[in-house]
Structures are given as C-alpha cells and as structure tokens.
Design a protein around this nucleic acid. Structure first.
Lengths: 236, 236
DNA sequence: TCCCGCAATTGGTGTCACCAATGGCTTGCC
DNA sequence: GGCAAGCCATTGGTGACACCAATTGCGGGA
C-alpha cells in the first residue's frame, strides 16, 4: 500500500552493496555516479546519501565525494543494516554476534517484564506461549515466526526500559532472518516451546529471577543450536 | 575543522524540539514550515527530514507532511537521540535506562575482551587504569572522562562482538552526559578506581569470569550511585 | 633535486523553479 | 444522511545554477 518509494529502493541497493563488501571501505563514490548508476536524479541521490550517512556507512567530504567507512563505524544495530548483512556473506558471524547480544539483553529484559508488565501483557504472553505450542506441533513455520517475534517484542517492550524495547526490531530481524535462511528445524524443538512457556509463566507470576533464568536458558539453547548447525564461519 | 554544516544545525534544532517534547507526537510539520522557521531552503529541509525519518522521529506522509512519531518508534539507541534527550527533561530516567543497558552488556563484553583482546589492547587497558588513578587523585574531571570513555570503548571493541562495539558511542554519550550534568563527584570515588583496575587486570590475565564479575560490580556501583544521587524522577 | 606556494579543477552544499502523484477534505448529489 | 467525485495542499522527483572548500598539479625558487 505504500507506493514503491524511489529513494528507498536506491538506498537498499547501495546499502546492500556496501554491507556485502562489494564496495570496499575507503572507496569514494560521487552523487553523480550514484545518480547515473541507478537512473535517478542528483537530489534523490543526495537524500540517499544522507540516510547512508545516518547509518554510518559513508561520510561525505567536500571535493572527494562519499567515502565508504570501515565496518567499525557502521550502525550495526540498525534493523536495515542487520537485514542487509544477513542477506550477504558473513551471515553466520552476524547471527552469532546478534545472538550474543540477545544473551546479554533478553534475560534482564525478561526480569524487568516480570516486574513491570501490565496485566494485559502478562495474559498475552501466556496466550502466545500456548498458541506457539499448538502451531509448533502443526509445523506452520511462518505463523510460528509471527508469534515468536510478537512474544519477544512484548517482553522487551514490557521490560520497563525503552532501550530494551528499541532492540525489539533487532530481535525481529534476527528471528525472521534465521527462519528465512532455513536455519530452523522443520518443527520447533520441544525444549524451545517449554522454555518459552517457562518465561511466560515466570513473568505472569512476577517471578523476576525465574524469568531471567528461563530466558537465559532459551537464548543459550539458540546459541548452542547455532554453533552446532552452522559452524561455517571458522575464524582463526 | 569540519565546516559547521548547515543541515546538521537544523537537524539538531528540530531533533531537540521533538525529543524534548516541545513538539507532541502526532503533530504534523511541513517542509515549508521547517524551511521558513530555520531560514533554510526546501531542499535542505528535505534532507533533514530524511535524517529524522532515519532516526524514527518522524514519518513523512503525502498531503499531510511530517508526523511526529511516538517515543516507542524512536531510535533511542542512536547517539544523537541520546544526546538530545540527555539535554532535555527526563534525563534521570534516561540515565537509568541506559545504565541498565550497560549492566546487561558491559559485563559480557568484558568477558569477551578477556578472551579475544590483543596484547596491545590488554596493555593499553592496564595503562589506562593506572592513569585514571593518577588523574582521579588530581581531580582533573575532563581528562579523567576521556580516559574513562577510552577504556570502556576499548573493552567493548575488543569484546570480539561488533554489536557490543557499536554500543561504545552510547556509553561515551552516557559518560560525558553524566559528567557535564554535574552528576559526578568532584573526585572519583576509590571504589570506582579499584573496579576499573580490577577489570583491566582480569582482562590482561585472560580471566573472563573475573572480568565479567568486576565489570558487573562497576556498573552496579554506578547504578546505586545514580539512585542515591538523583531520585528526582519518581515515577509511580 | 627538492620543496613551497599558487591556481585550476572537482564535487559537495545550498537555492530555486517546476511538474507529477497522492490522499485528505470538501462539496454536492442521490 | 451517506456516499462519491473532484479539488488542492504537500510530498516526491527533476534539472539547472551559484558557491565554496579541498585536492591536485604545476611552476618557480633555493
């Protein structure tokens, strides 16, 4: 329903080219080259450039053009950057680091949710866990994914800390990426279902310590599963 | 040395106005109004708008203009947003949530650094801790701040996880904000110096568990100090 | 030969005028 | 009173322009 939006298409193309490594850091681009390359006017190239600058992918310098920045400067927590990088090479490494981040954040967020969640939120969490079990048994991965995302988003947003809430988009990208990349088993393993239910229950019971432990176990499980499934990115 | 850059000044002004709450979510802006308000052409207003859109502060809709989004949509992890919000009302709440985020992330990052840091990085950490002790005793807050930032950035970047590294800018904003807002004691408390040194030592010794514990204690200290210092934002 | 300084070139920065598309709002018909 | 059609404000996109800073390369002097 939103019209294709020209500049966002160009942004996507250039963003992918940079994050995938097709354009090496240090390479200078020009508005002219972007414009002609994507059949687009100078003005929209400028807007795209501003957005890329906001994502930390490039820096604009006079007389020199847009220099592509090294990865250390990238806004690797921005959902767009995550999506691009999950689609390119190094997605295993990407999933590893993101899962580690989840391991740091989500247990504390679950504990926070156990303390601060509203009655409606607690009820929805339990309901979600139940429906996940049903859908998991049926093997409907896309619907399961939607519930999974919803549950983690709910937990992060109910944590009483907007910083955790801001990471909901990150987790959503990770989950969808993991599913679409075929890294999920055909049917969710029973442990995962149990752990989701344990988290929901602990939050519903306002048991912060239990919620934190359950969430920690859940993400830890994901971590070992990732290590077992795709140890492709052997580095050093 | 970078020229003042016109659009970034406008971005700053509008960003501050939104994050401070002067412009309530739902309010429609127009490029025209932004342009005339800041004596700037429509084109640069458009670029500013694109950046604000990237920060999740506004969404642009045809025929309506730019609608200011609710706080839940904001990119609260972006350093610019953090700086703006730390300068406005609600900075206590802001510091609380950011410190909680640090509590989640920095201990794990320290553990990672103990495993992955290079020899140079380990040496610099120990050196930084030593110099912090010297400067702390002398009471030079601004120099101390620089070392503090450097140390935390080093730890996050050496963690072996770029996601943690991306939070270095966030931590830097928190530390500078805390100092410039006068929330630091005239001279750093001895405990803080000890804990920084303990972290540096543990990382140098490749003792991940000790590094994690020391960092957890350090951030925990900050947390209780904040609670004690400024319980202004009594909410519920 | 080497270094310093000056000047030309290049490409971002900012402005302007214009047209296309769209969607909220109003008007008017049924 | 409800619904449909058309108006028009406002963004989306293009092209051309003046301006200025920094890079680069040329030339002259030591």
């Amino acid at each position: 329903m939103p019209p294709p939006a020209l500049h966002s298409a160009v942004l996507d193309a250039v963003g992918r080219a940079i994050t995938s490594g097709d354009i090496v850091p240090g390479t200078p681009l020009t508005l002219e080259s972007i414009g002609t390359q994507h059949q687009v006017s100078r003005t929209v190239a400028r807007e795209v450039m501003r957005m890329l600058e906001g994502l930390g992918l490039v820096r604009s310098r006079r007389r020199v053009g847009l220099v592509v920045l090294p990865m250390a400067e990238w806004n690797v927590l921005d959902p767009r950057v995550i999506r691009w990088r999950l689609a390119g090479p190094g997605r295993d490494e990407q999933l590893r680091t993101l899962t580690e981040l989840r391991h740091a954040v989500e247990p504390l967020a679950a504990a926070g949710a156990a303390r601060h969640a509203s009655a409606e939120q607690r009820a929805e969490l339990v309901d979600l866990a139940d429906r996940m079990r049903v859908l998991g048994a049926r093997g409907d991965l896309t619907e399961f994914l939607a519930l999974d995302i919803r549950m983690h988003e709910l937990l992060l947003r109910a944590s009483g800390n907007e910083m955790f809430g801001a990471l909901a988009a990150v987790v959503a990208e990770v989950l969808t990426g993991r599913t679409h990349l075929g890294l999920m088993p055909a049917a969710p393993v029973p442990e995962a279902l149990d752990q989701h239910e344990a988290v929901a229950r602990a939050v519903a019971d306002s048991d912060a310590a239990a919620a934190e432990a359950a969430m920690s176990a859940l993400v830890g499980e994901v971590r070992t599963a990732l290590d077992a499934a795709g140890p492709v990115g052997e580095h050093r």
